[in-house]
Computed example of a mutant assay.
Amino acid sequence: MKNSVTLFLIIIGLSMVSCNNTKIEKNIKMYSDTWNHIVNDGNLDLINNTNFTEDITMIASPENVVGIENFKAYYQNFITGFSDIEFTVVDIFGQGDNIVKHWKFKGKHTGDFFGIPATEKSVDIEGVTIAKMKDGKIAQEQDFMDNTLFMQQLGLSPNPENATIINQLYTNFGEGNIEAVLGMMDPNIQWNESSCSSYSDGNPYSSPEAILNGVFGRIGQDNEYFKLENIELAGLGDNKVLASLNYDGKSKKTEQTYKTTVVHLWTLNNGKITAFQQYIGIGKQ
């Protein structure tokens, strides 16, 4: 009788291991096939609630990308920003609901990429993604790669002085020293608000005075408070600086608070700001 019980337990244990291995294999196949078609075929429609959970989350800084539509909008930048794409999975393995993927990405930068105009440069990079699955769907991702190498391959060699200037501009704005902010601008600056912004009706604002009246003044009139938070700067080549940050404010009209993720692309020449482009990400201004 004892031998029969032992044999039964062994059979049950082997069955559980077999089922677990089958689940991992199924998750890996679904995950690999989905990303192959999304990146190599440019099929962003596969970012849907069949393959991803409704609250799919990409761990990122300064703020996570959450939800199917925001996740799709993020990866749209890669599909439209690069041509001749080759995305290869070098190795992939899993344990439980966790998947680790070692990948390589090749492409030519021929389109807008997070506000960076086409450089016509080719990139060949690799990285690692840690993913979590839930009920057979992709629930969370976090990418690790050498961003410095990526920017170098794009031919975007940063000028540290430009990032210092933009950092000072944000400091001046935070202290309410708008006169100093305007003084950092070229007299013929070209300032463009995102098409999603209610202040885009004046695009392009072509002087510091126009920006004061059409943007800064209206921000003060429309909000009980308005702050810039979680500012991260990346110096780019061609005298450009890319900033990611949050707008944290409260509307006077609706009395609602809001937090919006935005990207600013600054262009400088001889220490003066000659152009600005705003891109609104998660949320609305």
Rank of each mutant, 00 (worst) to 15 (best):
K134S: 10
A131Q: 03
V90R: 14
N64D: 15
E126M: 03
F87N: 04
K137F: 10
Q140H: 09
E120S: 15
A163H: 03
K121C: 12
S83G: 09
V123W: 07
F113K: 00
W103L: 05
M151K: 11
M151T: 13
E120A: 14
M58V: 10
A60P: 05
D91Y: 12
G136K: 01
F144I: 07
E126K: 04
K132G: 04
K104P: 04
D97V: 05
E69M: 12
I79R: 01
E141R: 02
K137G: 09
T119D: 05
T110D: 09
K132H: 13
E141T: 02
A131G: 05
W103D: 00
L149G: 14
N159Y: 05
V90W: 10
K137R: 15
N159Q: 10
I68Y: 08
G67L: 09
I165P: 01
I166R: 03
T80Y: 03
G136N: 02
Y74P: 01
K72R: 15
G127A: 12
M58P: 02
I166H: 03
A60S: 08
D97A: 10
I68F: 10
I79A: 02
D112T: 00
F113Y: 06
Y170E: 11
D84T: 13
Q152G: 14
F113G: 02
I165A: 08
D84R: 07
A60Q: 10
P62H: 15
T119A: 08
W103N: 03
P158K: 07
F71M: 08
